[in-house]
Design a protein around this nucleic acid. Structure first.
Lengths: 161, 161
DNA sequence: TATATTTGCATCGCGCACGATACAAACGTG
DNA sequence: CACGTTTGTATCGTGCGCGATGCAAATATA
């Protein structure tokens, strides 16, 4: 029995981890111009597509827990990008709505994806490879996410009737 | 001109970001048993393969800056997993060496990659897809990393003779 | 209706990541 | 040898991510 599996080069997770960080770094100069971070960019993309969501709904779309989103959204409120307000139907839920400034940022963000693709496509990576990459990643996410939900629902207490 | 490019589902970066986080979460229960975090696991894998590296060498292998590694390694020294010492040849460089405890942890870590692959393979993802994923990710990393190095070397001052 | 449970969000503590900055050792140049 | 520059590491401040915990509103149950 050898230990080649413990070599960095043979793990799927390390390339995933590095590629994710490097990609975020590649976005950074473009996002700096808008004065936002990458997670903030994600929140904005969700809201540009569908404004007025609750914290929980954003959490579901970004797969981020509310304990990550709460401070993040609070910072974005201080930046005047969005407004938080309690729902009248359910006082527990918080509605997130873009301000005019938050909506206007969409125009400045529009060319960013194109630029990023251009930066990558200029090299030896085929566009088709990126599409295949995205598909496999989404499969992976689906598997990991459902597995996680299953584990969370395995309560310590036996299921009660 | 439409804005479908700004939809979350059409960005390559979001799946990358989510998959990376979810994968780290999938490792967590296994790493918890060893009492280490995922970045610490990465450092150990590098050292298991090649002990006695400098901070700079580890930085190169993990693509992490030394300002991330310094505190990380310090924590691991407090955990008695490794020892830091200044090189005698060059007083600036710090040599990182595993302790007996750090070396022994390898035995407990050995079954982890196998378990992870098993968790993934049990579902609809083909093993070949994961290999292709890894290859494309490594290409991506190569492109992003070299691009970054090039940008860093573009000094503000003109190149002096 | 009273009580128990669930749900939605927030707070806290910790460990990354990283840009900016600092600093001493090493190196290069005159 | 004196100097300016580069190199290797560390420190600081900020923003995530996330497990653990808290808490009030809503819901379910008795």
């Amino acid at each position: 029995m050898n230990d080649t599996q413990l070599q960095l080069s043979n793990q799927i997770c390390f390339p995933l981890y590095s590629a994710s960080r490097l990609m975020t770094q590649a976005y950074k100069p473009h996002l700096d111009e808008l004065g936002i971070t990458y997670p903030q960019y994600l929140v904005l993309m969700v809201l540009w597509e569908n404004d007025g969501l609750t914290v929980n709904q954003i959490s579901g779309k970004l797969l981020l827990k509310t304990n990550t989103l709460s401070p993040l959204l609070k910072r974005m409120e201080h930046m005047k990008l969005l407004k938080r307000s309690r729902s009248k139907e359910d006082e527990r839920t918080v509605i997130i709505e873009l301000t005019t400034e938050g909506k206007q940022l969409k125009t400045k963000a529009l060319p960013i994806p194109e630029k990023l693709v251009a930066e990558l496509k200029s090299d030896k990576i085929e566009f088709e490879d990126l599409l295949a990459l995205k598909d496999t990643l989404c499969e992976l996410i689906s598997v990991l996410n459902t597995k996680k939900v299953v584990l969370e629902n395995q309560s310590v207490e036996p299921i009660k009737k």
